[in-house]
Design a protein around this nucleic acid. Structure first.
Lengths: 314, 314
DNA sequence: CGCTATGTTGGTAACGTTACCAACCGCGGG
DNA sequence: CCCGCGGTTGGTAACGTTACCAACATAGCG
C-alpha cells in the first residue's frame, strides 16, 4: 500500500519513505502493471480503441495523429487497428477493444451494418464515428462539409463558364462518395446544367482505376472541359492521364477541382483548384468529443461536428 | 471454469453445455476481459507497443500499416504512440507500454541516448528498432540500404556527366541523414569530384526549410546542375523552388535524384530519378523479426535486416 | 498527563481470469 | 457387482492493484 500510495502521488507518505520506494523502484526496474490496475472496479484502462479503414492513406495517418495527440494530452494511449474496409475485421477489432476494456472507441466505419455498434452491444463504452455515418446509428460524429465543399468547388467551375464537367469519385455506398456527388449534383442543377452520365464515373477506389476512368472520360465524343474529382486518389489518376495526353500532344487543357489536397498541386500541367481540409483536426475533434463524454461534461444527445473545408484556387 | 473452457475452444465440455454458454454470452453481451486474462502468470498480453516519430508522414503511416498487418496475422493488437522526435515522450511511451505488459516493442528511435532501452530496463520484453539505430544498443534492427541507395543515385548523376551536384538532407544526428550523406560522399569521392560545401545543405526537417535551402543553393555564383535530395520532404521543397524559378523564366534545368518516392513524380517540370523503397514491407519485416523472437524460433544474436531500394529513372 | 485530531502504515478483500485439483458421472471389463 | 478410467464439472488460489479499514505514532491542546 505504501508503494501504491507513493506512485499515486505520495499523499500521506513520509518523504523519506517515498525516497526509499523510488530508489527500490529504480533498482528493481519496477513498472506498475496497468492491466491489473484497471482490473479494479471503477478504474479506467486509459485506452482508446481506434479503427480506421486505411493507414496507408496519408489522410488517415493525419487523422490518427490528431487522435493520438489529444489522447496523450488526456493521459490516454491508443489501440490502433486497420480495417481495410472489411466488415468482419471491424467487428473483430471492436470486440477485442472492448475485451481490453477501452474507455472509448473512435471509428471510421466501413459501410456495412451497425449491429455490432449498437449501444446494447457496446455496454457503456462511448463511440465516436469519424468521416462517415452508419445508417440507423445515432452517435457522436465528426464529418467534413462534403456536400458544401463539393458544391462550392463545382460552382466555381460553372461560374468560370464550364458546362461540360466530368465527375470522378467513390461509389455511392461510401458515405463521402455519396455526399460529394450530391454537392456536385446540386451545383449542376442550380445552374440548370444537365448531368451527362457518360462523363460521370463513380466506382474508383484507387489510382489505377481512376486513371482508367479518366481515360474513358476523355475518349467520349464530346469530352469535358473541366473535371470535378471527389478525392485524392481520383485526382492523382485524372492528372496522370491528363498529363500523359498533354505530353502526347493532345490539345486538351481541362480545369480540375480536387476534393483533398496533394503536394505540388501548383506544379501540375493544368490548373488545379483544391478543396482542402484538415484530417489531423478531424482526429482532434473526434477525440475531444470522446473525452468530453468520458469526463461527463458532454450534453445528453448525440452531437455532430461538421468541419469546414477551404477552397484554394490555383 | 466451464465458461472459460468453452471460450478457450471447448475441450472437455459437453456440446449442449457449450451451446448454452454461447447463448448466455450472446444474451448478456459478455466480452472476456483480456486484461484480467493477461494478469495470470505466463499469459501474454497480445499487445505490441509501437512508437514512431511522425504519423503524419505517409512513410510512417505505411510502416505502421505493415506492423499492424503482421501483428493481426499473429493475433496481436498494437498500441501506437507518436514521439514527434521527442526523447522524453519516447521514454514515457516505453514505460507505459511496459506497464501495459506488451509482449514486445517496435521503435523508430529518436536520436537521443539509449538508457531507457537497455535490456535491464526492458526486462525480457524484446525490442526491434526500425529505420534507425541507437548508438551502443545491439538489438534486432530493420534498415533501408541508405548508403547504397544514395551511392547509386549520386553515381547515376555523375555517370550522366554532372560534376556540380547539390545535396539536401537531414542533419547528421539523424541516422538516415548521416547514412544517406555518406552514400553521396562516397560516390563523389570515387569519381574524384570535390564536394562544395556551398551547395550542401544538411539541416532541413520540413518542406519550408527545404525550399529555403534550395533557394540558397541556386543563388550561389556557380549553381549546381543536379541535386541529390535525401528524402521526401527535401525533394518537395527543392522541386517547389525549381518550379517557381522555371515559371519565372529562369533558364535552369537541373536533374534531380530523390531518396523516397512521391506521387506524380513523372509530371514534374524537371526529370526526377526516384530511389524507391517499401515502408510497409519495412514494418512487416520489423514485426516478423519481433514475433520470431517471441515464438522462440529466432537465433541468438541480434539480427539486422537491410532492405534493398530500387532506382527508377524518369 | 490524558485526550483528541491528524498523519502514517500495512492487512484484507475484490476486480476477472485460468491452472490445478477434487469430485462426480457413466461405462466397460473382470 | 465392483473397480477403474476417461470425460465432465466446479471449487480454490493466485496474478497485481487499490479502496477501505484498523492500528499505531505523533502533535497539539486543555
Amino acid at each position: 500500500m505504501t508503494v501504491s500510495r507513493t506512485l499515486a502521488g505520495g499523499r500521506n507518505v513520509r518523504p523519506d519513505v517515498q525516497e526509499r520506494v523510488m530508489a527500490a523502484v529504480k533498482e528493481l526496474g519496477y513498472y506498475r502493471n496497468e492491466n491489473a490496475r484497471s482490473l479494479r472496479p471503477g478504474q479506467p484502462s486509459g485506452l482508446v480503441g481506434v479503427a480506421i479503414t486505411n493507414l496507408a492513406n496519408p489522410y488517415y495517418g493525419n487523422f490518427a495523429l490528431g487522435v493520438e495527440e489529444v489522447a496523450a494530452e488526456h493521459g490516454r494511449r491508443i489501440l490502433l487497428g486497420n480495417t481495410g474496409e472489411d466488415d468482419a475485421r471491424e467487428r473483430q477489432l471492436v470486440s477485442d477493444f472492448i475485451g481490453r476494456q477501452v474507455d472509448g472507441l473512435i471509428l471510421v466505419p466501413t459501410s456495412g451494418d451497425a449491429a455490432h455498434l449498437r449501444p446494447e452491444r457496446l455496454g457503456d463504452v462511448p463511440l465516436v464515428l469519424a468521416s462517415r455515418r452508419v445508417p440507423g446509428l445515432d452517435v457522436d460524429t465528426v464529418l467534413l462539409d462534403d456536400v458544401g465543399g463539393a458544391f462550392r468547388g463545382t460552382r466555381s467551375l460553372l461560374d468560370a463558364g464550364h458546362t461540360r464537367i466530368g465527375f470522378l469519385g467513390n461509389r455511392s455506398s461510401v458515405f463521402t462518395g455519396e455526399r460529394r456527388y450530391r454537392g456536385y449534383e446540386r451545383a449542376m442543377l442550380e445552374h440548370g446544367v444537365p448531368i451527362d452520365p457518360k462523363i460521370v464515373f463513380r466506382d474508383q477506389q484507387d489510382v489505377a482505376a481512376a486513371t482508367r476512368a479518366a481515360k474513358a472520360m476523355f475518349d467520349v465524343a464530346d469530352p469535358p472541359t473541366a473535371v470535378f474529382s471527389a478525392n485524392n486518389r481520383n485526382t492523382i489518376g485524372a492528372i496522370r492521364e491528363i498529363g500523359r495526353r498533354i505530353r502526347d500532344g493532345e490539345p486538351l487543357h481541362p480545369a480540375v477541382v480536387s476534393f483533398d489536397d496533394f503536394e505540388l498541386s501548383e506544379l501540375m500541367p493544368v490548373p488545379v483548384t483544391v478543396i482542402d481540409h484538415d484530417a489531423r483536426l478531424l482526429g482532434r475533434e473526434a477525440a475531444t468529443l470522446l473525452f468530453s463524454r468520458l469526463d461527463g461534461t458532454a450534453e445528453d444527445g448525440p452531437r455532430t461536428v461538421e468541419l469546414p473545408v477551404s477552397i484554394e484556387f490555383p
